[in-house]
Simulated scan of single mutants.
Amino acid sequence: MPGEALDISVVIPLFNEEESLPELTAWIGRVMEEHQFSYEVLLVDDGSTDDSWKVIQKLAVSDPHIKGVRFNRNYGKTPALQTGFQLVRGSVVITMDADLQDSPDEIPELYRMITEDGFDLVSGWKQKRYDPISKTLPTKLFNAVTRSISGVHLHDFNCGLKAYKQRVVKNITLYGEMHRYIPVVAKWNGFRKIGEKVVQHQARKYGSTKFGLERFVNGFLDLLSITFVHRFSKAPMHFFGLWGTLSFLLGFVITFGLIIKKLYLIFTHAPFRNVTENPLFYMALVAIVIGFQLFLAGFLGEMMVKQHTVKQADYLVVEKIGV
């Protein structure tokens, strides 16, 4: 029934996965029935160009636990998850990929770790991977950098198999490609009990991966972005004002030194050249201008923060089933 509380909500973002959906949903159903969970499976079709949505429609007719949402075009995994999080009703929310590389058999233990061990979030760790080295090596580097910058000590940030308390997914906002950093965002929002579980990783059975190496570049840029936003979004003057002041002072010190030197040469009747012929003069000028601009950026940022009203990204959903 709509509005009824459930044990588990499974959110599955997908793009062109028509072949794997029947097998995946049947597998999830077997696990749920075996452990007598009340549940829903929310399939978020991220603008697929194959027959994924037709498959979802057929599955929803035959199984009332299956629900669907379809975007008008491909927005990306983060918007798909954000939309799914807004609609779920389970006390524990499980996310997984649609390509059958995540095993639904992991769900009961993930549920137990949330409900009994008290974790706010549990992230899967694909300790043994069936991916080519061109994917595993960049992944290891990416995870190491993320651990270092964020302070969240997980081995596999990009694992799609994760479990959350419902209040976690209802109180975080995702944008860009931040699905990799949900544990980081959750920690910064006060959900600090974050666990990790070694999970089974399976070779892709159908189709091919939808992600290329550019995701690591975009992911690193997103990490820098959310780190900056977390630290300075409420007080941009703390960043821009600090560096602006330092730059301005550097320019002022150089200028003052040039003036003192010029006066000394005048009073001692020593030969000297025009100050504009000294490269330090231009360095001082540039430092003062940059310092002023940074300080002004901080000031304007503070004014915008005071007047800012948070607006959630609006993704165009063209169809829904059961939600």
Results as ranks from 00 to 15, higher is better:
residue 135 K to W: 13
residue 157 F to H: 05
residue 114 I to E: 05
residue 114 I to P: 02
residue 117 D to R: 11
residue 188 W to C: 00
residue 197 K to C: 01
residue 125 W to L: 03
residue 188 W to E: 10
residue 179 H to W: 10
residue 145 V to W: 05
residue 208 S to H: 09
residue 142 F to A: 11
residue 127 Q to D: 11
residue 118 G to Q: 15
residue 184 V to C: 02
residue 136 T to D: 11
residue 161 L to V: 07
residue 150 S to E: 08
residue 128 K to V: 06
residue 208 S to V: 04
residue 132 P to T: 09
residue 128 K to I: 12
residue 129 R to F: 10
residue 148 S to H: 06
residue 152 V to H: 00
residue 211 F to D: 11
residue 136 T to N: 10
residue 126 K to I: 00
residue 180 R to T: 10
residue 168 V to M: 05
residue 186 A to N: 04
residue 121 L to F: 02
residue 133 I to D: 12
residue 194 I to W: 10
residue 145 V to D: 01
residue 207 G to I: 06
residue 198 V to K: 00
residue 197 K to E: 06
residue 209 T to V: 07
residue 198 V to E: 00
residue 208 S to Q: 06
residue 154 L to M: 08
residue 198 V to A: 00
residue 160 G to M: 14
residue 191 F to V: 03
residue 162 K to F: 13
residue 174 L to Q: 09
residue 203 A to R: 06
residue 138 P to R: 05
residue 212 G to H: 05
residue 123 S to N: 09
residue 120 D to P: 02
residue 187 K to A: 10
residue 144 A to Q: 12
residue 192 R to N: 14
residue 133 I to V: 15
residue 173 T to A: 02
residue 115 T to L: 08
residue 157 F to K: 05
residue 159 C to H: 08
residue 183 P to V: 08
residue 152 V to C: 01
residue 133 I to K: 12
residue 184 V to L: 07
residue 141 L to M: 13
residue 187 K to E: 05
residue 178 M to N: 11
residue 191 F to Q: 09
residue 141 L to Y: 12
residue 204 R to F: 09
residue 208 S to A: 07
residue 129 R to K: 13
residue 115 T to S: 03
residue 194 I to S: 11
residue 199 V to F: 03
residue 181 Y to C: 03
residue 145 V to M: 09
residue 182 I to G: 00
residue 172 I to W: 02
residue 132 P to H: 13
residue 153 H to G: 00
residue 130 Y to S: 11
residue 113 M to G: 07
residue 112 R to M: 07
residue 183 P to I: 03
residue 156 D to S: 14
residue 157 F to Y: 14
residue 209 T to K: 04
residue 150 S to R: 05
residue 138 P to S: 10
residue 213 L to V: 05
residue 160 G to E: 14
residue 200 Q to G: 11
residue 133 I to L: 15
residue 142 F to E: 05
residue 170 K to L: 00
residue 199 V to G: 01
